[in-house]
Design a protein around this nucleic acid. Structure first.
Lengths: 144, 144
DNA sequence: GTAACTGCAAAATATTTGCATCCTT
DNA sequence: AAGGATGCAAATATTTTGCAGTTAC
């Protein structure tokens, strides 16, 4: 994991600092998307709020993470897969919010659907957020 | 319009005050969704910020308007149609953000698509935001 | 007249910026 | 050594809360 973290930062021309490594590590070890607050809580050690803001911003700028809009006005961030790069973010997957565990995931392999728009509307990007029960919670609820 | 505004407020057990009438009027005369800031700007007269917060909140609680999540962390609000009521909001339409005019609309008659989720995922609600060019801007761009 | 609504002040929160210091390269 | 990153302080911006005065019913 250590090597992977270094690799990601270097590939994006970011200095490898302990703060960035820690925050990137959090994303790598969490399947779910994280908010600014989650990161402050889980980082363990004391991070300056400002550092978290700036780190998240630079990660978004570089295309390492992407933001997910939420209904309650908070912003969640999640790792981008390899087909994202600076200025060329691929947003063609959908997001799933589990009502049971509260986590938000990217469903990388579930493409966004084609939308049948009214006449004269042209779509360039489709964002989809599905709410429901994720597979983990579903299995706990009704085990096989 | 005056009568319609009164009717909506009364139906929802809200006192008919000049502030609420003005804000509701803004929603009725704008096809596009409005942010807190839009309302402060367009209200014309001086509204206390706090009144706008509280009015929007009570409208959301009553199901008169609904909020639309956006990528940039701002919240937009739009009128709900008649099949919304307190506690029983119907969210089964999609939202369209025009990249040209910047407006956000509800596409009331365009239902959200069925999503093919991975195994063991169960969907309860699907939110869709489509970005592109709206019909008005499309016509201006390439008139018939 | 009573309950609900509004405005003002102020508190609590969230985000941004400047700058001096420290760390990475 | 030089440039970039961080922490601290402070400036801004946003949202919430309490309360007293006003308005709707």
């Amino acid at each position: 994991m250590e090597a992977q973290i270094d690799s990601i930062l270097k590939r994006n021309n970011l200095s490898v600092t302990s703060g960035r490594k820690r925050i990137l590590e959090l994303f790598l070890e969490n399947a779910a998307a994280l908010s600014h607050g989650d990161i402050e809580k889980r980082a363990g050690e004391k991070f300056d709020r400002v550092t978290v803001y700036r780190t998240l911003q630079s990660f978004v700028d570089k295309g390492i993470i992407h933001s997910i809009p939420t209904a309650d006005n908070s912003i969640l961030y999640a790792l981008c897969k390899d087909n994202c790069s600076e200025g060329h973010h691929r947003d063609n997957h959908l997001h799933f919010v589990c009502n049971r565990c509260g986590n938000t995931f990217c469903l990388e392999n579930t493409p966004t659907p084609l939308i049948n728009l009214p006449e004269n509307f042209v779509a360039s990007k489709v964002e989809v957020v599905v709410h429901g029960i994720c597979s983990d919670c579903q299995k706990k609820k009704a085990p096989m």
